[in-house]
Amino acid sequence: MSSKESTEQLAAQVAALCRSLGVSPEPETAIRIAGYLDLLTQWNRKTNLVGPRRADEILHTLVADSLPLAGFLESLPLADDPLCLDLGAGAGLPGIPLRCLWTRGRYYLVEVREKRCVFLRLAVGRLDLARTAVLQVRAEEALQQLPDEEIADQGADLILSRAFMPWQELLPFVRPMLTPGGQVVVLANEPLPAVLPEAWRPVESRSYTIRPGREESTRWFWALQAEA
């Protein structure tokens, strides 16, 4: 099978998965996500970015979270041109598929490991992701390394975390990095707790269901805001 045929087949799988999650991407968007999957699969054989998985497995277990996330972010009360930090970006999940669907603001993939940053920069460039860049720094240094000092001084409007650290540790970690009214979005395997730490309030929570195998898996997005 040629590389083009492989990408076309993956694009069809991406489109089908999107539809099952209530997402309606443009055909070229499905092709871009398929191109990312192709690139990730190639690199994964050499550098083990996401464990020993095939492209279709990566799609249904890891990329699946990125697809409904775009709609969730669009529903949040964010600034018109938000500054977004994706902490512990790893192999670009959820960030790179997300940016194929959701293009608002300036989006920084923050990752300290060099090999992953090399891959992320290659993927961002090859997919021509608008206003998306890679920062090879420790997460706590991300704002200080932004190219625009004035923006950095204002703080982030949105911080995302998939598995960077447990959410109980994440909230105090990111609070100094957020602009007043800024939000943190957590990708979780459990519903939003009834009681949050002091000085945090829920903005929105949404569940979604994926089917990585025969069994369904329900996951959640939480959007939280630090009180003034």
Rank of each mutant, 00 (worst) to 15 (best):
E140C: 08
T61P: 07
A16M: 05
P52S: 08
R116Q: 04
L101T: 01
A12D: 14
Y107L: 05
Y107C: 10
L170K: 12
I151N: 04
T41S: 15
A11M: 05
G181T: 05
R99L: 12
E111V: 02
L101Q: 00
V63W: 01
N189C: 11
L98T: 03
T41W: 08
V184H: 10
T7I: 15
E114P: 11
Q168K: 14
V23T: 08
L178D: 05
Q136A: 13
L85P: 01
Q168E: 15
W167M: 07
R214C: 01
E215R: 14
L122S: 13
S205V: 08
S75K: 13
V118A: 14
L196V: 07
D128F: 01
R138G: 09
L83E: 00
E149I: 11
T61D: 09
V63H: 00
I96T: 06
E5R: 14
S205F: 02
R201T: 13
P27D: 09
L120H: 09
G125N: 14
G92E: 05
D128R: 15
C18G: 11
D65C: 07
T209I: 12
L67K: 05
W220K: 03
L39S: 12
V23A: 13
A79H: 07
V174L: 00
S217T: 14
C18K: 08
D157P: 08
I210M: 09
R53S: 12
G88I: 09
Q183G: 08
R104H: 10
R106N: 10
R175M: 04
A70N: 02
L170G: 09
V195D: 13
R201A: 15
S161W: 03
E150H: 13
L160M: 15
M177N: 03
R104Y: 00
F72D: 06
P172G: 12
Q13T: 09
A194S: 15
R126D: 11
V137Y: 02
L192N: 10
A55W: 02
H60L: 11
W102A: 13
L76Y: 10
I159T: 01
A12W: 03
V186K: 02
T179M: 03
S205G: 08
A64P: 07
V203D: 07
E141N: 14
R19D: 11
M1R: 13
V184D: 07
L78I: 09
L67N: 00
G92I: 07
N44T: 10
R175D: 05
L62Y: 10
